[in-house]
């Protein structure tokens, strides 16, 4: 029997991350193509209940151990190695976020098998796997056929829509007892929460940036609402900072901060080179501008040719309602 497709269910501080569902959705496709089962693997301590949210998988394998209560990567790698050796899956999909960043590479080293990093897609045809990795800052894609089994694959966020990996079913849960020694060389101490004080916009994952098109200080609140809904922060172009609508620490561009968030919403910003210099490397740029010719549209991935005053509130609304739906689903 060919081994199953495994998805490591990423949990952090007792919560499943969104990427888990994205990778589950991908795993489902791969498993179906290979004609095997999709199994979610849950590692941790006293988090068995999370299995209930993993309906997309055919079954859930659950490893509970006190040593897995704290995020020590090596312990997780040992546990997963143990499970892989015990159950011999064919493919192991690891969500690639800063929770499990080094896990795939560690696993592959321990198991002495190959590892493919930064996969933006995985397909399977005629029993053969084909992965597509994003390299060189997104400037190249490499296609690799991981021949060995198990194939350990690190999967980038956003491979499939989150919703595609959610299902209401209650999958069977199987517990695998694992004998783990807490590594003596790394001791977990604690989490340091985000400090108060003005945020550092270069460290934000989501930025809503406003330009002169926002027109008044009061309207900056519209951007703040959207940023709040998306879990990000507000920043701006120089004229907005000059006006004193936002502090200098929020200025993006040549004489401000260089940012590289996952999402940059440019609202009412023309896209002057001095501004673009500070944000062009953002992963996803969405521009809202009433001028269809605005140069910002040459930098953005998605453009909305409309009035910011209309778009921002509507978008905030839409984001909120989606979150509501998601909460209900969970």
């Amino acid at each position: 029997m060919a081994g199953n497709v495994w998805v490591l269910a990423e949990q952090w501080r007792g919560q499943l991350s969104d990427i888990t569902y994205e990778v589950l959705a991908l795993g489902k496709e791969v498993a179906t193509a290979l004609g095997v089962d999709l199994q979610a693997v849950l590692l941790g301590h006293e988090i068995k209940d999370l299995a209930r949210s993993l309906g997309e998988a055919n079954s859930v394998l659950y490893l509970d151990h006190t040593a897995l209560a704290t995020p020590v990567p090596e312990t997780f790698a040992h546990a997963l190695t143990f499970a892989i050796r015990a159950r011999r899956p064919h493919v192991v999909l690891i969500p690639l976020t800063n929770v499990n960043w080094e896990l795939g590479a560690l696993l592959a080293a321990e198991l002495e098998v190959g590892y493919v990093n930064a996969c933006k897609d995985v397909r399977s045809e005629g029993g053969k796997l084909e992965t597509r990795s994003l390299l060189y800052g997104g400037k190249m894609e490499a296609i690799v056929n991981p021949g060995q089994s198990p194939a350990i694959l690190g999967i980038l966020p956003g491979v499939r829509p989150t919703d595609q990996g959610r299902a209401d079913a209650m999958p069977p849960v199987e517990e695998l007892t694992v004998d783990l020694l807490e590594t003596s060389s790394i001791r977990w101490k604690r989490y340091l929460e985000v400090e108060a004080g003005d945020i550092d916009i270069s460290k934000q994952e989501v930025l809503v940036s406003v330009g002169r098109g926002i027109q008044s200080r009061d309207n900056v609140a519209l951007a703040e609402d959207l940023a709040g809904a998306l879990g990000g922060a507000v920043c701006g172009s120089r004229p907005v900072i000059d006006q004193g609508w936002l502090p200098l620490s929020r200025q993006v561009g040549k004489s401000g901060v260089v940012v590289k968030p996952k999402l940059y919403v440019a609202a009412g910003i023309s896209g002057a080179p001095e501004h673009v210099e500070g944000m062009k490397n953002s992963d996803l740029i969405v521009a809202v501008n009433s001028d269809p010719q605005a140069p910002i549209f040459n930098v953005a991935h998605y453009g909305i040719n409309a009035d910011v005053m209309d778009v921002l509130p509507t978008l905030t609304e839409a984001v909120h309602s989606r979150k509501e739906v998601k909460k209900h689903a969970a």
């Binding site: 956003g158 989150t162 992963d283 991935h301």
Partner: peptide, 24 residues
């Protein structure tokens, strides 16, 4: 940029899809 078209609500929904697809 790929331009999103439609009513503000439609645009907002399209964008939510895009963001959701990227795990945002």
């Amino acid at each position: 940029a790929q331009m999103l078209k439609g009513s503000p609500e439609e645009i907002a929904n399209q964008l939510c899809e895009i963001l959701a697809a990227r795990g945002l």
